[in-house]
Amino acid sequence: MADPAPNMPDIRIDMTSAGRQLAPSLERRPSPLAQVTDSRWPDQLFRYAMWACAISVLVILALIVYELVLNSRLSWNAFGLSFFSGQDWDPVQDHYGALPFIYGTLVSSLLALVIAVPLAVGTAIFLTEMCPVWLRSPLSFFTELLAAIPSVIYGLWAIFILVPILRNYIQPGLAKWLGWTGLFEGPPFGIGMLAAGVILAIMILPVISSITREVMRVVPSHQREGVLALGATRWEMIRVGVLRNARTGIVGGIILGLGRALGETMAVTMVIGNRPEIAKSLFAPGYSMASVIANEFSEATGDLYLSALVEIGLALFFVTIIVNALARLLVWSVTKGQPARGNV
C-alpha cells in the first residue's frame, strides 16, 4: 500500500505497548560525515563541462550552415530561388534546378513511412502486448539487428533480391489492381522510386519499432487495467489504453525514422534509378538529394556545378528541419493542453 490509510491511529493504540525495545543500532552516535568539508570547484567544473558539451552541438551546427551557405553562394547568385523550382539538371549547359531531387527525397521518404509505420507499430504491439515471453527478447534483438546492417549491404540486397521480386511479382500486380490511380503505371523496371521506398522502409523500421516499443512499455499498467475494467476487448485496450497514451512518443519515433530516411544515401542511390525527373508513377526512376551529392560530387567540374551540389546539401538540411518542425507542430496540435503521459 502506497500510503497507510489516514485514519489509522486509533486502532493502532496498543502497537507500542507490546514491550518493544529500541534496537542497539538505533542509539544516537555522532555522524561520521560531520567532519567532511565541501569544496565548490568539482561542482563548478562539472557545470562548465556540461555547458561546453551542449554549446559544442550548436557551434558545429552553425559551422555546417556557414560552410554550406558560403560554398553555395555562386549557385545562389546564378539561380536565386528558381534553383528550388527548376526541373532542369544539366551540367553540360551549366544549368541547375533542384526540384527533382527534393521531390525524390520527399516521395521516397514518405513512401517509406507509409510502409514502415504500420509494420513498426504492429511489431511493437506484438512485442509488448501479445508476444510469448520466450520469443520476446530474440525477436526484439533481431528487429534491432536490422539497424546495425550497413546501408551498402541493404543496397546490394535490394539490387539482387528486392528489385527482381518487385519487377516480377509485385509491380505487375500493383499495375493491374491499382494502375488506375496513376501511381503504378509504366513499365515495371524494378529499380525506381518504389524500390527506394521499400528499402528505406526496411531500414527505418527498427528505429520506429524500438522507440514505439519503449514508449508503449512505459505506459503504466493501471492504464491498461482501467480500460479493460470497462469491458474493453484486447484490441480496444491496446488502442485506448496504450497507443493513445503513447502517441507522442510514437510520433517522436516516426520523426527519427523520417530523419534517417531523408538523409539515407547509399542504399537509395543503388536502387532509385538516378534520373533527375519528376514522374507521378512510383515505378519510374527518380533521384534524391543525398544520392546526387554522392554520385556527382567527385566528378563535378566547374565551380558552378560544385556550388549547385553544395546548395542541394543546404536544401536537404532545410527540408529536414522543415519536416521535423511540421511533425512537431502536428504532435503539439493533437496533444495541446494535455500532458504527454500524465499521471505516470
Binding site: 493501471h222 487495467e225 482501467g226 474493453a232 497514451n245 503521459r341 499521471n343
Partner: peptide, 21 residues
C-alpha cells in the same frame, strides 16, 4: 470477460483517469 466487466465496474487503488482524454 469483456461482457462480464460491463456488469462489474471497478475502481482502482491509484486513480487512473485517461490522461489524454
Amino acid at each position: 470477460a469483456p461482457q462480464l466487466r460491463r456488469r462489474v465496474g471497478m475502481v482502482f487503488q491509484k486513480p487512473n483517469p485517461f490522461p489524454t482524454m
